[in-house]
Design a protein around this nucleic acid. Sequence first.
DNA 1: CCCTGATTCGC
DNA 2: GCGAATCAGG
Length: 229
Amino acid sequence: MAWTDERIDQLKRLWEAGNTASQIAEELGGVSRNAVIGKAHRLGLQSRPSPVRGGDSSAADATPKAAAPKAEPAAAAPPPPPPAAQPAPPPVAKAAPPAPAPTPAPAAAAPAAPAAPQTVFRSIGPGGFQRQSPGEQQAPSTPAPPRRLVPAKPSAEVAGKTSLLDLNDKICKWPIGHPGEPDFHFCGEPINPGFPYCLDHCSVAYQAQLPRRDRRPPPPMPYGGPRVR
DNA sequence: CCCTGATTCGC
DNA sequence: GCGAATCAGG
């Protein structure tokens, strides 16, 4: 199974969304957990809290890394790995509790720009995107209402639709329809900062892990989505 | 045991 | 570049 752009992109998103390598492997299909991890590393994806890493048994461990039980020839001279700065920590915020949050005080999270007239978007984690608007602030008292997201068909009109050539870094790349169809186009709405899709499509693309019981049947996925087993 | 991610190294 | 084998912690 080759690492196509789509599969790589899926890997990135799932990885950064906090899925385990096993889950990602299962989701992608055709690859092993190791393959996912290996690819993730090759892509330079930052590893999330791994059980092996942080588990520093000794408080002041003098030995940094002696985990080389295998051959340790004469290599030595470890080239200082340029810490490729971490330029992208914004997209991931605190994970949103999927469970019914009894928190009644919603305003506490919006201390900044209370007078800002413009809508502010804040991603609060995979599957937990919420619109934060000064006016239409909704108390999350309701048990995570599974928003019924229709594939948002802005206008089936041929005119004004977002074509492939219209895509850029600022608009939602969620496909509407299917490639080849006469009216196939892209969402085109302003993106949710840090993501390739708009707010609504982010909430579709990044589904929160719900109990298998009451999970919404067929989440609309582009291109048929990941294989169904 | 199970799980996890990290790393190595032959391909 | 890829990923099975292996390592190592929870």
